[in-house]
Write a protein that binds this DNA or RNA. Structure first.
Lengths: 143, 143
DNA sequence: TTTATATCCTATTAATTTGGTAGGATTAGT
DNA sequence: ACTAATCCTACCAAATTAATAGGATATAAA
């Protein structure tokens, strides 16, 4: 399951991407439009900024804008930032590898192999899910 | 991520499946062999029994045995029992559907569609991961 | 230079989930 | 009766998740 943080983050990013020709967008505006608790959203956007997914400008008329193109920001990136590993088992995680404690021999573990296949498939799809892709899908669904 | 409960459950089930020609297998034996805390395992096996995945026989020489064939028990079933939904979003869960609170219109939600595709793929693979399949994979990997 | 409106920073808290224990009642084979 | 097993109810501790509080700092415009 995605955490609320990740969902909020993706919603906020999509929102910013949709309005990216405008000025930087303020936390309070996103908070109201997307019904995300203000202070919570603030901390989320700070994290996104710290990991260089967003830019920020301070002061009046300031706010947040995408750092890269909407094609360069995908769900895998956001999930990993807020929820950590995507894999079902830590021992098959690309970015957050940990040995499974209860596992005797990693190399011959049956469920590990399955978890690895699922991770490959899932990561592939999450990486394809860029902001652009998400917005395109929404437009198609609206017809 | 799979919870420890799910991992313990799968390990225990695989263990029982491997020794299924023997008498029913006791919690304490599985606990020792698989390094799973006794009382915790007890509660896990009780849940597996309540949902008819295991049979139990009480009293001396009692213990647990598979209720169905090892082909009929798969990871999807076990995961759903202990961790709930497999899907990344509650609104695409087959067995634990819940409306996404922050979502305005489910029908036109871009990330929902992505989550649905991932769920389909993941569930397919988890259902294929029966006890038999897991054991076969382990045997292959051991060579 | 004041004011309005932003982000930034540090800390704290509340709620939920996860992982695990404790202690005894009940059942059944020898 | 004894032994070894499941069953049952309750409890607890640690970790994670979801937020809130309160102010410091920066910036554009009046």
């Amino acid at each position: 399951m995605l955490s609320k943080k990740t969902k909020y983050a993706i919603n906020a990013l999509v929102y910013i991407a949709k309005n990216k020709n405008e000025q930087p967008i303020s936390v309070s505006r996103i908070s109201e439009d997307q019904h995300i608790p203000l202070k919570f959203l603030e901390s989320i956007l700070t994290e996104l900024k710290n990991s260089r997914i967003l830019n920020s400008t301070k002061g009046k008329y300031g706010g947040y804008s995408l750092n890269g193109t909407p094609e360069s920001i995908d769900m895998a990136k956001v999930m990993r930032l807020f929820d950590g590993a995507i894999a079902l088992l830590p021992c098959v995680s690309e970015n957050f590898y940990l040995r499974c404690e209860e596992c005797f021999d990693e190399e011959t573990c049956g469920i590990r192999q399955i978890a690895m296949e699922i991770r490959n498939e899932t990561v592939k799809r999450l990486k394809a899910a860029t902001l652009t892709d998400i917005i395109k899908r929404e437009e198609k669904l609206k017809k």
